[in-house]
Design a protein around this nucleic acid. Structure first.
Lengths: 333, 333
DNA sequence: GTGCGTGATGGAAACGATTACATGGGAGTG
DNA sequence: CACTCCCATGTAATCGTTTCCATCACGCAC
């Protein structure tokens, strides 16, 4: 494949000049510029970004490590990150950690070796030595969606506390009292936060939370279904099931349907995480929406600030309650 | 950041030896190997893949250009491609073309400059000069999901012809005759194929297809909804609406619901493209499933064969009819 | 005419790895 | 003892850029 040297030879100039044309430096005469560009076209020259990066120590590439691209929440995040990065002249390499720490590490290692200019990580539960290590050694990392305790890393995430309060109040106003919660893993910051907010919100409304009304799943559909089943088998089953993420909500939905129960008449359902097709379900699902696009875009901006050496601060955006019909009709209707 | 030279100095050996340890060449004594590895750990050495790629002319990276990561079909595809590539020691850079030719070109250009070892493209409608150009100049490209006429590029895709015949027969057996089709853009190979297969299948069953029962959408939800509305407004509306992709099916679903019509009693609905949550709809949607994971995996294998210079052949995998309840209960029930 | 600033261009070092080739020492063999 | 072979290791060229510095020609002022 043609290199800068071939172009230089073909145009009868030096490689330095070709390079200057490439980076459109002003110190090239109109005439030479044309000559060089003609040579480039003639030889179908394509700059070699690898060589360029070696020299400039910058790859114009960002790494993004997410839990799973098949989870619509992460898909939206990834899309937003990519859009924002492209606008800033960067390419994004996405790594699917599949929620497994060792696979997360695999990507951290690989992306670092590829010398990405910055790294966006949605951390899995545990702090791995590798992650801790490269954070300490100053790698430009920003955490997205989740945080890890004890590490001084800027993060961009949503806070669902307020929205969970809104949800509990909404349900309370509709006259339901017994609310059960399918929580997430204690190990994930998002899991802990939501559970805590749920308890707080219930207390604030003067509602009781029996121990058997809260069970932790693993953010996967199967656990949502199993836990919903246990809730419904209780001698005094809940009037509302609130799932801690979209996949567990799906599992709960299946369990409810398979028992022939009607939503919301027999049991109401709500979910943390809003995904596009919740609106197309029958009935449409009431859910708490995270500002995923905004999170993705902000994360890129924070990361790039960091890369450029500016001081950066963590960002926390509020989640928002989206009332549909799965908890009953609202009083305003 | 520490380089191979620093490691060499720290271990008291030459850079060549360090490099040999790195690539675990057998021509290094046990003893030196340990010394070098100790030095690497001490200096937190991370190999620089950029430099390595420059020298070896291989990046161990594959490019994947898809229509839109938010479309579940592409998400599954991307996930499979990534898994298979990782297993083979490659990283994947995903580019979202957003179905826009110029954005597709942006990624083709960028990825080529980054010197990816191979390129997987789900081409948008048009052949762009750039794509044509690099295909002709022998870039290792494989088309995925769609093909472009007139270009000799190996492709990996699904064929829905058989499944569409199955679907039409299925509907026919259930006693419905008037089937309308929301087809895809004529410009896309997938769009053309499905339309053609639909006509053939109808003819084979002895069913008539009035001109106003086929309308082309753009594979987006809004067009599906609009076209469904026109079908339903016909003086003799269809008994079944068959949508050419999952997004248009969604649009049609919304339109049907908003009119208070029941599925399948008032009108049946089926979709090309099966996505996970179709099974969770009420009623679960009958759909034609493409073997997306398999497509992704095979595409990587074909591409890698190509990269390694082996002769390769295009792959066509059959799509499969998945009968659920949105066209009515099957006779076997 | 000499000196100098300016603007365009070229020469060559560097980036961090890989690798062909050279070197040197120890063991084995006659 | 001398010769050879082999194994471990080192030296240096190389990949395709960018960029610092030098060079050269030109015009202008003194």
């Amino acid at each position: 494949m043609a290199g800068i040297k071939d172009v230089a030879a073909h145009a009868g100039v030096s490689v330095a000049t070709v390079s200057r044309v490439l980076n459109d430096s002003p110190r090239v005469s109109e005439e030479t510029r044309d000559k060089v560009q003609a040579a480039m076209r003639a030889l179908r020259y394509r700059p070699n970004a690898v060589a360029r990066s070696l020299r400039t120590e910058a790859t114009q590439t960002l790494g993004l490590i997410i839990g799973d691209i098949l989870n619509p929440f992460f898909a939206v995040l990834a899309r937003a990150v990519e859009d924002e990065a492209r606008a800033a002249g960067y390419t994004v390499v996405i790594g699917n950690a599949d929620e497994r720490p060792e696979q997360q590490d695999h990507y951290v290692r690989t992306l670092l070796e590829q010398r990405v200019d910055g790294l966006l990580i949605c951390p899995t539960a545990e702090i791995t030595p590798l992650v801790e290590d490269c954070v300490r050694s100053g790698a430009p990392v920003v955490f997205l969606d989740r945080t890890l305790p004890g590490l001084e890393v800027p993060s961009v995430r949503a806070d669902g506390t307020e929205a969970i309060h809104d949800l509990v109040r909404h349900i309370h106003r509709l006259g339901r009292r017994r609310i059960a919660f399918i929580s997430g893993p204690e190990l994930l910051s998002t899991g802990r936060e939501r559970t805590r907010a749920f308890h707080d919100a219930m207390r604030a409304c003067g509602l009781d939370v029996p121990g058997r009304y809260v069970e932790a799943g693993d953010f996967q559909a199967a656990s949502g279904r199993a836990i919903a089943a246990r809730f419904l088998d209780l001698s005094e089953p809940p009037e509302v099931i609130f799932a801690g993420d979209n996949l567990m909500a799906l599992g709960a939905l299946d369990e409810i349907r398979s028992r022939g129960l009607r939503i919301p008449d027999d049991v109401a359902l709500a979910s943390f995480d809003d995904v596009a097709w919740f609106a197309h379900l029958d009935p449409p699902l009431t859910a708490i929406a995270q500002p995923a696009e905004e999170l993705g875009r902000r994360a890129v901006r924070v990361l790039l600030d960091r890369v450029e050496g500016h001081p950066v601060e963590s960002v926390v955006l509020p989640a928002r309650l989206v009332i549909r019909r799965s908890c009953g009709e609202t009083e305003t209707k």
